Simulated scan of single mutants.
Amino acid sequence: MADPPTGVSRALREAPPDRVVEAADRAIRSVLGASGTAVFVADYRSSGLWPVLDSRQPSAGAEAVPGVLQRCFSSQQPVRDLAEDGRCRLYLPLSVWGERLGVLMVELPEAPAETVVRRAADIAGEVALALRAADRETDRYRRARRQERLSMAAELQWELLPGRSVSHGSFQLAGQMEPAYTVGGDHFDWSLDDNRLTVTVLNGDGVGLTAALLTAVTVNAMRNARRSDGGLVEQAELASDTVFYQHRGHRHVSTVLLELDCATGRVGAVDAGSPHLMRLRGGTVSRVALEQQLPLGMFAETRYDLQEFDLDPGDRLFVVSDGVWAADPSGRETYGERAMARSMRATRLQPPTEAIGTVMRELQAFHADADLRDDAVVVCLDWRGSARREGD
């Protein structure tokens, strides 16, 4: 008999991209004897989980408990919810390569044995992979994620992202953009290649769609250099020249480029005018001092220097845009002066996927829950220490 996850995989592969949820429901009912399933996806702020519903099909998800959903999503562990009649709703994280997509709920006739939970977790992994792939071919899951209409600038920014989190044997990484539905020029990008992680965070000049278009050009110029085996300096210089020859110095992009050697913890860096780099080591938050060079696009043929620093196992790096660091909603001291360090220290026991939310929530509280005046980006990187890659 075929291994159950393989059977589910086949059903998911053969389903149209906009019907992955229905295909998963049929396969899981067959393989696990479930009476119902539901898929919930995280919204753009990762502040809520919302069902992918088909109005033609009743969903057991209508009875899902929000607190249990959030506990599963936050802990990234299966959670059982046993009803008085003996039925059990099993909540399973939907994540792939460390990116948290949502939660799969499976309704079972009785409390499952550990072997069933493990099998269901494997199936959830297959569903997550299928959803991530299908997301390129349909708008269905994007519609479920958004709780209000995105601005044109935000639409462009979110489509440009590599993801919102990623994990590896030696690191965990996560990022968040706010205000999620109207973000303009601030952005982040990353790529993992041959045990080297490249991370960039950008403050695009201007507001709205104009800033988003400038950032899109900059990100793709850096990707072009990176995908042609160019190092950080070449990435910065190509992006700078591209922006300059398009805008003749009237527009620029403040950017920090980082490359982590996942085996040694050595970090190469190019600081092109901002954002800010903070290190949490133990209980102490300190700024990583880098030589600040010209923002990208200010002058023709600007040349950049590479700097380096080391991470210790257990170190946490935060990269924040000016919209975080310089926030001063009431004319008092900026968020980066003292409040930001307090919020970063409060994340010590949280994974990066939760830590970015903590810093953003504290930023919102600093604004007394008023709308952010500027775009804000937080990226959080934990280096765990050297880890051998599978196959090495």
Rank of each mutant, 00 (worst) to 15 (best):
S170D: 00
L197K: 04
D392R: 09
R373D: 08
A370D: 12
V65E: 15
A60Q: 06
A289Y: 05
V65G: 07
D241V: 08
R361P: 02
L82N: 09
A24Y: 12
V41T: 01
H276T: 10
I123H: 03
T115G: 13
R132L: 15
A120H: 08
E63M: 11
D312L: 12
M152N: 05
S30E: 11
M344F: 03
V116R: 14
L257Y: 11
Q172R: 15
L363S: 00
A368M: 11
S321A: 00
L232W: 06
E337W: 01
V96Q: 08
T264L: 09
P78F: 10
R348G: 09
G314H: 02
T353L: 01
E99V: 02
G7R: 15
A326L: 03
S330Q: 05
E107W: 07
D194T: 13
D312S: 12
W383D: 01
D18A: 07
S165R: 03
L161K: 01
W325H: 10
S165G: 08
M298Y: 12
A225P: 07
L129Q: 04
V103F: 11
T6I: 12
R348V: 15
A62V: 12
T138V: 04
R132S: 12
A269E: 11
L306E: 15
V320K: 05
V217Q: 14
E99M: 01
E291L: 14
P93S: 09
R388A: 13
S286P: 09
M1L: 14
